[in-house]
Design a protein around this nucleic acid. Structure first.
Lengths: 152, 152
DNA sequence: TGATATTAAATCGTGCGCGATTTAATTTAT
DNA sequence: ATAAATTAAATCGCGCACGATTTAATATCA
């Protein structure tokens, strides 16, 4: 455990950011065949998860939970609308915001989606305890990163 | 620690994949201002890291290390070439493959980049031990995910 | 009240990231 | 030696993801 020379920190596999980057793409690839059956992309699936948890959210609310801008969400939500999974309506109380609600088909899709998370956990090769620890460490890290991104 | 009901698994913050997804974007946002000074995007930076570690690689070799397809790398490498950071030449031994090499400017950029990883580690808010554990858990998971993606 | 500021979505341009296909070079098997 | 199979990049279309800007609605304040 001698301290690593400086150049060691500039090796791809030694960068924590790279392990996150590549893990994220790995998840994407694992999910793809499962989500293809539902007609969803990976980010669309995450939006649907958020709506299954809480229906009738504003674009802003979804964006805060997912850490995404309206410039990302608006086109994505329009595609979900075109697929008849959600509806988008201006809030009568405040015409600035758009409320996103599940259609019948969108709500029904939940049943098909419910088996996915356990399928995925298996593919990670992690025991439940490690998975929980990893989950906790990642959220802690993300919250710190988001906080220092805001501060600049 | 009672076993969670099934619907609990379909909450955004309870999905391991989402913690990876959002952490990946958080890294992107943290790196951006630092990389802007180098004139690099985040994926371009990762390619440069790989080349600083081992110069004169084929597109295929870079793709294997980064888990990326040529359809992603070719345009990215052309942008690095346009920025005079790398050169792309067909391998005379095998004209199918393209060798990517650092230019003088590309090699020189390494010095400016060396201070970045330690800046980032600080922003994660992780102590060194947790960071190492997280790194190890992530790579293990990614390797499992990649393996089961191949198997189908 | 009317001007100003703030807020929420939408729009636009750039750069990934991937699957499917194409092109060209090399390898293999006949 | 030639046909068939394999391999490496490149190309194309689609969908994120973001920063910057725009548009429209609401809130604030003079």
């Amino acid at each position: 455990m001698a301290d690593a020379p400086k150049e060691d920190l500039l090796q791809l596999e030694k960068l924590l950011c790279f392990s996150v980057y590549s893990a994220s793409h790995a998840f994407n690839r694992i999910y793809k065949p499962l989500l293809d059956e539902l007609g969803l992309t990976y980010p669309q699936y995450l939006v649907m998860v958020s709506l299954w948890q809480e229906d009738n959210q504003s674009v802003r609310s979804i964006g805060e939970k997912m850490y995404l801008e309206s410039s990302t969400l608006t086109p994505l939500l329009k595609r979900l609308e075109a697929a008849d999974l959600v509806s988008r309506k201006r809030d009568p109380k405040d015409e600035r915001s758009v409320r996103v609600s599940l259609t019948e088909a969108g709500a029904a899709l939940r049943t098909k989606a419910e088996k996915i998370p356990t399928c995925i956990l298996e593919a990670t090769g992690l025991d439940l305890e490690t998975a929980k620890r990893l989950h906790r460490d990642l959220r802690s890290m993300r919250n710190h990163l988001e906080a220092s991104a805001v501060k600049g």
